[in-house]
Design a protein around this nucleic acid. Sequence first.
DNA 1: ATCAAGCTGACATGAAGCTGACAGCTAGTC
DNA 2: GACTAGCTGTCAGCTTCATGTCAGCTTGAT
Lengths: 224, 224
Amino acid sequence: MRLLLVEDDLILKDGLERSFVKSGYAVDVISDGESANKLLTYQEYDVIVLDLGLPKLSGFEVLKRLRSRGANTPVLILTALEDTQNRVKGLDLGADDYLTKPFELAELEARVRALIRRGVSGGSAKIGFGGLTFDTTNRQCMAGDIALSLSAREIALLELLILKAAKVVSKTKIMEHLCSWDEEISENAVEVIVSRLRKKLLIFGVEIKTIRGLGYLLAKLENN
Amino acid sequence: MRLLLVEDDLILKDGLERSFVKSGYAVDVISDGESANKLLTYQEYDVIVLDLGLPKLSGFEVLKRLRSRGANTPVLILTALEDTQNRVKGLDLGADDYLTKPFELAELEARVRALIRRGVSGGSAKIGFGGLTFDTTNRQCMAGDIALSLSAREIALLELLILKAAKVVSKTKIMEHLCSWDEEISENAVEVIVSRLRKKLLIFGVEIKTIRGLGYLLAKLENN
DNA sequence: ATCAAGCTGACATGAAGCTGACAGCTAGTC
DNA sequence: GACTAGCTGTCAGCTTCATGTCAGCTTGAT
């Protein structure tokens, strides 16, 4: 899943980024409100972590403009201001969650996971597809009580496909969700990841269908 | 959909063209204002991407003359001039959107899509016909919750027919919409594409009628 | 009946996609 | 530091599929 972190504190920024990357997110970091606003006009994210105290354009303003463009991307607001007034203002503007500094890393991660879940699967931690169950909390995929042995890339791809249910996901979209700016992979790399994951899923009756020229979609295997 | 790109910067021109072609547009490129103006007197487009800083005739002038001929083709202005004055001037002259360089490719594409949608279907991304729903955003056609498996050409043709609702569309018009100059296909090729699409649509109660000597039109199948 | 317009099955070609092999990289272990 | 195992991207050669052309047919107007 692709995450945007808007934060100007240098130390916090680095720590959060490293931690999110380690958890398997594709993370982009930006440190002022104006750039964030511009970026959000054309780049979609699965979740945004937004500090309120930003240079150039406040977090409030970034959020307001994002919502006024009709985007419903989940936003978690991060701030030093503890008073209720700002909390209310943030939620009124369309924030989905709110965390005041100082906070525990684990709590932030849990809330981010919850936001992604809420947006896609109606809040439940486990999503089923065919004979598979995907657990978004520890990012593991189970078939019955067997845990599939998948690599990080494979899990990221499966997560995306399973969250998009039976919709076509283009190679470009896959590239966007698996990689942040500084990484860049070829279309062929996506094909390779698909090929490897496909092989592992087939055993469990789940198929990755190719829609030529458009992308891939997850489907239950038809037996006949 | 057919797109005209008026741009004199060599590098930008090439990049944009390649990207639009990849997205499935039929793209014509022209690099000076005078030729653009001349071309626009006889060739219709679905959307025009227009640079302001052009040799021979400015983008402003091209736009002004286009509008004075009564054409309401959506126009997106592209420019290095960032000041508000020019933005206002452009919009006053009848531009539909405005983007200042440097910009991200993805943003330009998103805005072009938005313009096409706005122009044709009143802003909604989905258009229905009979039992079919055509999603202009991700260029997919659904019958209920089944996605039709259509090739790129078939989708392009269906898009055109469905946008023109129950009006007759001539073979020449179809050729214009599916191809830019450098590609050229025969009338027979159109017949073949129609034949293939027709077969697939029949199952879903939608018929492509032939109006001999005039063209084709989309109709709901009458059962008797 | 004649002829042009249109239809469609068969085929060739090239692009899109697949996958085994390989090599560079990372993390863990001693 | 050196060794190992596993992950992951690139490449090359292969397969699959979309699409234009052609040929021979059907349809419809006069």
